[in-house]
C-alpha cells in the first residue's frame, strides 16, 4: 500500500518530533523553574487532554483529506447540554454525560450526513456548523447561564488522580490506543488512507467511501462530547464559550504531528507527539524567567514557527530536488508575467 520511501519520510518526521520534544524537555528542565516535578507533569497532561482528544479524532478526518472546524463549538454545545441535563432536567451526572454523548453523536451525524449524502466539501459544512453549534450553545443559555456546583464524584474526572495519573489521562489513553489500533491495524484505517490518497480509486477498489467518511465525522462528534465532559469536570463550570478556538489548536497539533493536510499520510503516534510538543512548549515558557510574562503570546508565536519548521523539514529534500529540476528546465530567460 505504502511505498518504502514515503514510509521513511514518515518515520523521520516522528523521529524529528521526538528530538524536538526531548530538546524542549531538556531545555526547560535546566533553564526553567520547577519544570520536571510530578505536579507540573500532571498539569501538562491535564491541560492538554481536551485538545489532545480533539486532535486524535481530527487525525483520521484529515487522513481522509477532510477537516472538521466544528469540534470546538461542539465542545461548547455539549458542555452546555451536559449542564442543562444535569441541573435543569435533574438527571444524575452519569446519565447527563451519556445524554451529552448522544448529542455529540447526533451533531457529528449531522456533519456526516451533509458531507456524504450531499457530497459537500467538509470545510464548508463544518464552517457552517462551527457557527451553528456555538450559536445553539449561546441560544440555549442566552450566553449568560453558567452551570456550576457539580458533585464531587463528577469533578474527580477532571481533578482527581487514579493509580498515579490524572483521572482524565486514563480516558485519553484509552481513546488514543483505540484510535491508534483502529487507524493503523484495521482495514478501516487503511481505507481512510486510501480515501485520502484517491477517493475515486478507493471507491473502485470496493471501499464504501461514504460510510467510512461518515464514521470519522460521527466519531469526532462523540469524542468532542467526551472532551466536553473532561473539560467541565476539570474547570468545574460549563458555559457556552467552552472550547473556543480548540479546533485550530487540534488541527495545529495534527499537522505538526506529520499528518498531511491533503490526506493519505499520517500517524496517531505523530499526532500524540504533536500534542505533547505544543503542551510542553506552552508550559515551559511559563517557567523561564525571561519569558514568564509573555508566555501566552510567545507560545503562539513559537507554535507557528515550529509548525513552519516542521513542514519545511518534511519537504526540504523534495523542494531542493524540485528547485534543481526547475533550474535545469528553465534555461531560457524568464518570460514577463502577463
Amino acid at each position: 500500500m505504502m511505498n518504502p520511501a514515503l514510509r521513511r519520510i514518515l518515520v523521520r518526521h516522528e523521529t524529528l518530533l521526538v528530538v524536538v520534544l526531548i530538546l524542549e524537555v531538556l531545555f526547560f528542565a535546566t533553564q526553567g523553574r520547577n519544570f520536571l516535578t510530578p505536579d507540573n507533569l500532571t498539569n501538562i497532561i491535564r491541560h492538554s487532554v481536551e485538545i489532545g482528544l480533539l486532535a486524535l479524532v481530527m487525525m483520521p478526518i484529515i487522513l481522509t483529506g477532510g477537516i472538521d472546524l466544528s469540534v470546538g463549538s461542539l465542545l461548547g454545545l455539549c458542555a452546555v447540554t451536559f449542564g442543562k441535563l444535569w441541573r435543569d432536567a435533574g438527571w444524575g451526572w452519569e446519565w447527563a454525560a451519556l445524554g451529552t454523548v448522544v448529542v455529540g453523536f447526533v451533531a457529528g451525524g449531522g456533519n456526516a450526513l451533509l458531507i456524504t449524502a450531499l457530497r459537500l466539501p467538509p470545510l464548508i459544512v463544518t464552517l457552517g456548523t462551527y457557527s451553528l453549534f456555538r450559536g445553539l450553545a449561546e441560544a440555549l443559555t442566552r450566553g449568560v447561564d453558567a452551570f456550576t456546583g457539580f458533585p464531587e464524584g463528577f469533578l474527580f474526572l477532571g481533578t482527581g488522580q487514579w493509580l498515579g495519573l490524572p483521572a482524565q489521562a486514563w480516558l485519553f489513553g484509552l481513546v488514543a490506543v483505540g484510535i491508534g489500533l483502529w487507524v493503523h491495524n484495521t482495514t478501516f484505517g487503511r481505507s481512510f488512507r486510501a480515501i485520502g490518497f484517491a477517493p475515486e480509486g478507493a471507491r473502485y477498489a470496493g471501499v464504501p467511501v461514504e460510510r467510512r467518511l461518515a464514521l470519522a465525522y460521527v466519531l469526532a462528534g462523540v469524542v468532542a462530547a467526551l472532551a466536553s465532559i473532561t473539560y467541565t469536570a476539570r474547570f468545574g463550570t460549563a458555559k457556552a464559550d467552552a472550547g473556543t478556538g480548540y479546533e485550530l489548536a487540534a488541527i495545529t497539533a495534527v499537522v505538526l504531528g506529520g499528518t498531511s493536510i491533503f490526506g493519505g499520510v499520517g500517524s496517531v503516534g505523530g499526532t500524540l507527539l504533536g500534542v505533547a510538543a505544543i503542551a510542553v512548549l506552552t508550559n515551559g515558557l511559563s517557567r523561564l524567567p525571561a519569558t514568564m510574562s509573555s508566555a501566552s503570546e510567545l507560545s503562539g508565536v513559537f507554535t507557528g514557527v515550529l509548525l513552519l519548521l516542521a513542514l519545511g523539514a518534511g519537504i526540504l529534500p523534495k523542494a531542493i530536488a524540485a528547485l534543481r529540476d526547475r533550474r535545469s528546465s528553465a534555461q531560457t530567460p524568464a518570460q514577463p508575467v502577463p
Binding site: 499537522v255 493536510i261 510567545l298 507557528g304 514557527v305 509548525l307 513552519l308 523534495k318 523542494a319
Partner: peptide, 27 residues
C-alpha cells in the same frame, strides 16, 4: 513563497502565519 516556492499546504502555512502575526502584534 512558502506555498508556491516550497510547495507547502496553504492552510497550514497561513495557520502558522496567522498565530505568529497575531501574537507578535500583541507582544
Amino acid at each position: 513563497t512558502l506555498v508556491a516556492g516550497l510547495g507547502l499546504p496553504s492552510i497550514v502555512v497561513t495557520l502558522a502565519t496567522m498565530v505568529t502575526l497575531r501574537e507578535g502584534l500583541r507582544l
